[in-house]
Design a protein around this nucleic acid. Sequence first.
DNA 1: TATGAATGAGCTTTCATTCAT
DNA 2: GATGAATGAAAGCTCATTCAT
Lengths: 190, 190, 190, 190
Amino acid sequence: MTEPARAKRADARRNERTLLDAAAAVFVTSGVEAPVRDIAARAGVGMGTIYRHFPTRADLIIAVYRHQVEACADAGPALLAPGTSPHAALGQWIDLFVDFLVTKHGLAAVMQSGDPAFDTLHAYFLARLVPVCGLLLDAAASAGEIRADLAPHELMRGVGNLCVGNDDQYDARRLVEVLVAGLRLPPAGA
Amino acid sequence: MTEPARAKRADARRNERTLLDAAAAVFVTSGVEAPVRDIAARAGVGMGTIYRHFPTRADLIIAVYRHQVEACADAGPALLAPGTSPHAALGQWIDLFVDFLVTKHGLAAVMQSGDPAFDTLHAYFLARLVPVCGLLLDAAASAGEIRADLAPHELMRGVGNLCVGNDDQYDARRLVEVLVAGLRLPPAGA
Amino acid sequence: MTEPARAKRADARRNERTLLDAAAAVFVTSGVEAPVRDIAARAGVGMGTIYRHFPTRADLIIAVYRHQVEACADAGPALLAPGTSPHAALGQWIDLFVDFLVTKHGLAAVMQSGDPAFDTLHAYFLARLVPVCGLLLDAAASAGEIRADLAPHELMRGVGNLCVGNDDQYDARRLVEVLVAGLRLPPAGA
Amino acid sequence: MTEPARAKRADARRNERTLLDAAAAVFVTSGVEAPVRDIAARAGVGMGTIYRHFPTRADLIIAVYRHQVEACADAGPALLAPGTSPHAALGQWIDLFVDFLVTKHGLAAVMQSGDPAFDTLHAYFLARLVPVCGLLLDAAASAGEIRADLAPHELMRGVGNLCVGNDDQYDARRLVEVLVAGLRLPPAGA
DNA sequence: TATGAATGAGCTTTCATTCAT
DNA sequence: GATGAATGAAAGCTCATTCAT
């Protein structure tokens, strides 16, 4: 009686958890553009339930991956420990980002699709990660380790693109390493 | 009886030309995944005609771009002129490849989509361009200019990916430059 | 024990009031076919509450407009003051009815939709207003002012129909005036 | 060989006929807003076929009723024979119009719905019938038989509205007669 | 051979209504 | 009693692909 609202919320939360788990599972096998029906079926709920919790697909994707995105964002500043090369820190952070993207079938593709339906998703990623990337990029540039003419969003987009279609035949991580290496300023004499 | 057959063949060829021109035009505006109907309409033929000439979309795309792919492939060896740095040659060739991809709306995306419908397309690209890329890569590696552990198909795939979604907001070419720069061996002392 | 019950009733009544006000407000902006959810939200209650109080939409609409319908019905007999032309009285009453309908977005349409879901609503309107209309109609007919072959429900339905879709482009009231004028018996010589 | 185009066209035409017949039949029972699926099923064709022939519902409705609308429009001027009262001619024409509307379940409603999806339909009706109505209206007004302050589109809208929901309980035609009678100028002495 | 009409799976989205809490 | 989460039927629309003419 004192907590009727909370009881509801607990239920709903449990359900949302189910939904997110189901979506995550379906995303793994069918990609983030899987039919709503499939996700609903997997969760054992009606489609309407998904629409109630996540009005747009972008909302659902964000919810599914929010924790990981936050963790990735949070990890950035910590890598800039004194005594570490900023360029190395950048590389490590990018590695975390690649860890994330590489396990999300189709996420990278959808992020670059330009489809306005995913604008929210896109914006969320940028808002959360670009500043972190910028921090590390600036540090490395200030230290004279890398070229200073690449904006964080460009780098992130490049990394995102390199992660499109990662599979057994194509190791995105290695390519990203090369890309990050390519940021280094050429030796003075070159 | 031999004449009519030949006449037909001439006709068919003319028709194929029309088809390819129309497809190319539509690809420019609507991307390589444009509805078959649109291409047929543009060519002034029925959709069945397209299916007859090009059973799969991949076949059509290949036909549309074959000349350019061939030209790109042919250009590779010529860049390895004596007196030129092989790494520079590689960079120039990659540049040609980027020229090609960047003007084909959606081609890069489709190339990496993993959709089996495009396997033929993918295979054609690899068959034609990977050897060339390998030649330049080997030359640069042998010259000790670049790391030797990256396979040509990996590099091409990376470049292809970087070209996905090229637009005003994102200059794929710059990212590719960084990637190619990243191939360079670190200075001996590093 | 008797007290709590009464308290409940007071509460319930207050709640019903809230519901009706909310419904009325939503009807104004979204029409009488507005989603139940919207009405519930506006009232700050759950949808179930609406269904409890008003099992069908017709019940809700009736409740919302009951006062006005009653007022309209009550106004009829009063217009039949001695010394007034019964036809004029009829016209004035119809005018009141039009006042009512014209401010209820979609009510007129729903009244004539034939949808059995609104049968109750329809029946209520007829039960309440037809007798009044009949009274005025009979008076005018008895006075020899108008034709006597039109049943009250026919006239009301006609007026109701003319009020469908009233807006800036279409002045229902004028058409209703014409209709009422059309009831007049032709001059003897015609 | 000389008429391949024509052969096709004959086929398509036959099919279109089937479609129109099916649509007409479904319109009778379910109204002009019947699901596309139902119409397709009735015609024994896929839904796509309907969309091919009639991209919007308005197109389909227009096609279904075009002949009758045209006939109605054409009939107007002929009624203005010398020696006939223009007001009587107007009445006869309106009668034809009512004949048309009264047999089309839901058409009248949809015509007044304001839904932009039906703008084409609405426009077609207006374009075709308003001028005719105007002709007859003007003639009667010029002859001093009726009031001159009602625009043709107003009258048509009124008539259209009166025809909404015509059924056994409600004889739209009679109400329309009253409306048309109401146009008459009151006797001079009134 | 060429045509393009026909097919229909497949996806999205909305909302009335029910019912567990 | 009240709540509002869940359900799922309905409907719209698109396009790749087939196949009768």
